[in-house]
Design a protein around this nucleic acid. Structure first.
Length: 451
DNA sequence: TGTGAGAGCGCCCTCTGCTGGAATACC
DNA sequence: AGGTATTCCAGCAGAGGGCGCTCTCACA
């Protein structure tokens, strides 16, 4: 279920509405408008007490924008309206606490989605609170006819002409007329290579370039080429100028694109708008959900070209290749001891287990020395192997660990808590030599048999 | 009316680190 | 011999970079 926030005109009341799209569905507003007319016929009452309160506030700001939020189920081609009535005026946008800012930020009067975090949060909350009973689903919305309303001028507004479908305003009627085309289905420019159509020749031209592979915009620094100038511009910010206009106000993160900042903000808010249908997992972005779904399907799309072992993620296979089939693989040296560990992540485990400070100290049973680090304790224990570090609990006899076991039995204490190390026979070592390799060969054989 | 600039969404990728079972070493 | 600790390893998710493509709007 992909949720799309939007707003529709309330016919009869002549109120404009802001539309806010969060999922990149260009048809949302238009469809929303169409659907609303049907909703009215279906006698759906959307103005609740909360909405009326908002309306009164709207009068005060002279920007009455009663919003009807809707959810669009892309899979079922259905639109559901929530009972939640929300308004968003420019003044309110300013009041909401912004969790990120842009360098040279400018206010847009367009009907684009707001980048205000509070709005993002509201969206997620409303999605969360909306229940099936509160929603009315209208099927086959695409079959409904689009009805345009005439442009009108609002009183006391400098811009002069306002769009009745969104918050767009302009001083020139021609601009408004042109803008109104964005709410229509008219796409005169057809691609001769695929069924797509576009509103302008430039859009079509760019699109055709994606078919032909024509990339007229070349980067002067690295010879990479792009279809549009915008792509080149962004590429330069990523690779060469390193300009990152979007700054997080909570941490040091900054990004080239606003969408990356929105994604980053979710790591602060904890918002997870992409739930898994099969388990309780929910993701912060679409790709992670897609990746997660592989755990349900069991698909392992990455195969080791050497041993044919398969992996779910490319990174896992890469590490496998390096560790199993790589030559002169560098090991990670523990900074506190001489241990060499093949994986960096396991070095972290090693550090946590052996070198971290422990509130609850370990006491040596042989000499009552106290240690707050496990590794130091283990090293200390070794010092008792040769010397007389072990004291009998029954009498005052002291000796080394090996002899203490014998003495303890004589003293009636039974076996001591630690046993002397046993030496493995050479033959046994031979058998144990590289058992993993033998097993992996067996695994490979069974894998090939399966195939 | 055409075009450029920028915004927005989507997709895929890499890097990173945690987790838990298996293998191995140690006692 | 058997228990325990440590290391190896694959699975998996978090976070972010980079780019493809399309759209809207301002401007010439």
């Amino acid at each position: 279920m992909a949720a799309v926030a939007g707003a529709v005109v309330l016919p009869g009341q002549g109120q404009a509405a802001v539309h806010s799209v969060s999922q990149g569905m260009a048809l949302t507003l238009r469809e929303g408008i169409c659907v609303f007319y049907d909703l009215e016929l279906a006698q759906i009452h959307v103005l609740q007490e909360e909405g009326q309160e908002k309306s009164s506030e709207s009068k005060a700001t002279e920007k009455p924008l009663d919003m009807l939020r809707m959810e669009i189920d892309r899979d079922n081609d259905a639109i559901a309206f929530e009972n939640n009535i929300q308004q968003l005026s420019p003044s309110e946008e300013g009041e909401g606490k912004k969790l990120f800012s842009t360098v040279g930020e400018k206010k847009s009067q367009s009907c684009k989605a707001s980048e205000n975090l509070s709005e993002l949060c509201n969206e997620s909350k409303e999605r969360e609170y909306a229940t099936a009973s509160e929603q009315t689903v209208v099927k086959n919305s695409k079959n409904l006819k689009f009805q345009a309303c005439a442009p009108r001028q609002k009183k006391g507004e400098k811009e002069g002409f306002s769009c009745c479908f969104c918050s767009f305003t302009s001083a020139r009627l021609s601009n408004l007329k042109r803008h109104l085309k964005t709410h229509s289905d008219e796409k005169r420019y057809l691609c001769h290579l695929c069924p797509k159509a576009f509103r302008t020749a430039t859009l079509l031209h760019n699109h055709v370039n994606t078919h032909t592979g024509t990339k007229p915009y070349k980067c002067s620094d690295c010879d990479t080429a792009f279809v549009t100038r915008g792509e080149l511009s962004r590429h330069r910010r990523y690779k060469h100028t390193l300009e990152k206009p979007f700054k997080c106000t909570i941490c040091e993160y900054s990004s080239v694109e606003a969408s990356k900042m929105r994604r980053h903000i979710r790591s602060h808010t904890g918002e997870r708008p992409y739930p898994c249908d099969l388990c309780s997992y929910a993701s912060k972005d679409a790709y992670k959900l897609k990746r997660h779904m592989l755990t349900h399907t069991g698909e392992k799309r990455y195969e080791c070209c050497v041993c044919r072992a398969r992996f779910t993620q490319s990174g896992t296979m890469k590490i496998h290749m390096l560790q199993k089939h790589g030559e002169n693989v560098p090991k990670h040296q523990c900074p506190h001891c001489s241990t060499l560990i093949s994986r960096k992540s396991d070095l972290g485990v090693h550090l946590r287990n052996l070198h971290s400070y422990m509130e609850e100290a370990i006491k040596c049973s042989a000499c009552e020395a106290v240690f707050h680090e496990r590794y130091a304790f283990l090293q200390h224990r070794k010092t008792h192997r040769g010397g007389k570090g072990f004291k009998c609990a029954q009498c005052s006899y002291t000796c080394n660990q090996k002899n203490m076991r014998k003495h303890a039995e004589n003293c009636g204490l039974g076996r001591t808590e630690t046993a002397a190390p046993r030496k493995r026979s050479k033959e046994k070592n031979k058998i144990r030599e590289n058992p993993k390799r033998v097993k992996s060969e067996v695994t490979l054989k069974s894998f090939q048999d399966e195939k």
